[in-house]
C-alpha cells in the first residue's frame, strides 16, 4: 500500500505551503515533489516520498544508530 522511497532534497522552489522539491533517488533526480507535509524540510535533508509527496524528513542519526545496532548481530 505504501511504496515510499527515501531521497535527498537537492533543490526547493515555490512558496509555503506549496513548496516543491527536486529529490535525488540514488541518481534519478525528480522534481515537483510536494513539501506540503514537511514545512521544515531543507536542501540536503533526506525525505521519505510517496506518490509525489514528501511524507517526512528522515532522522539520519536514528537511522544510523539503528543500522549500527542491527550490525552487532552479525559480529
Amino acid at each position: 500500500m505504501c511504496l515510499g522511497v527515501p531521497g535527498k532534497i537537492v533543490k526547493i522552489t515555490g512558496n509555503e505551503p506549496f513548496r516543491t522539491a527536486s529529490v535525488n533517488f540514488g541518481g534519478a533526480v525528480k522534481g515537483d515533489i510536494s513539501l506540503l507535509f514537511c514545512p521544515d524540510a531543507k536542501v540536503g535533508n533526506y525525505c521519505l516520498t510517496h506518490a509525489g509527496n514528501a511524507l517526512e524528513v528522515i532522522d539520519e542519526k536514528l537511522a544510523l544508530e539503528t543500522i549500527t545496532l542491527l550490525q552487532t548481530y552479525s559480529t
Binding site: 511504496l3 522511497v5 531521497g7 535525488n24 533517488f25 540514488g26 541518481g27 534519478a28 525528480k30 516520498t49
Partner: peptide, 13 residues
Amino acid sequence: VDDDVRGLCEILG
C-alpha cells in the same frame, strides 16, 4: 542496473 535507472524503478515500483 545503473543507479539512475534503479532509482526511477524504485519510485515507480
